[in-house]
Amino acid sequence: MPDTDTRDRQVQGLDALELQPERGRRGAGEVARRVWSASWPKLAAVAVVLLAWQAVVWSGWRSEWVFPGPDRVLPVLFREVSTAEFWEAVGVTMRRALSGFALALVVGVLVGLAVAQVRPLRVAIGSLITGLQTMPSIVWFPFAMLLYGISESAIMFVIILGAAPSIAGGLVSGIDYVAPSLLRAGQVMGLRGVQRYRLLIVPAALPMFVGGLKQGWAFAWRSLMAGELLVIINQQNSIGWALSQARQLNDAERLLSYVIIVLIVGILIDVFFTWADRSLRRRWGLAAA
């Protein structure tokens, strides 16, 4: 037998050869270049959209009172952004979005866990969950308004119906698709009960669960916007309320600036979920770094 030292060297040599060479730290210049190469296409796209918009306005397709160009909308947008009412409206809408989403999260997780665990339940409502996901949640509003009247509860009800199925669905498929080799390893190590969930099932299901959250958020946001336009709660300032106000007053500049706000909020949240998803996958070794 080669002596311990020689063997140590052999093992270390092999390890060194098999490991990926460490990548050097990125310098400041490198970071700047990456940021630039990631952001210029987006900036260019924004510029193209603004140009196209302006071009349509210049073509005289509709009167500028109905369809103002960016030259008129953007100043209104900037003025709006500096008022207290604007932030109040955004605050109300975001509070609704977050509390609705949080409720949907609780409901979705409870239902998802139950369906993943109890076989008869899965047979009974497994496909119902998929069915609900495909349903345009706006259909629920008349019913919600019958149940809860013109109130925030009606909006919450629809948000939950819109988002919870996606969240539950993500959780169920996350649990279903835990790699059998990992389950077997857990069994060999004696993982049972709560510990099995905490140390194995939940973390293994996390990437798919985050996928479900992202989709659930998209549905919640849409349901909320539809809700704020349909269920107009008097004198309660919100993005939806501001939109309908602007329409009633024929204030096209204000209307379009709120549309832009809705777009921006959507993009920001999407960026957040994409980042969460990406960093999870990177930690798991599922995606290239």
Partner: peptide, 13 residues
Amino acid sequence: AMMFQEAALFPWL
């Protein structure tokens, strides 16, 4: 204890 062809380490740890 038991080992398999795949190491089956938990990738998140």
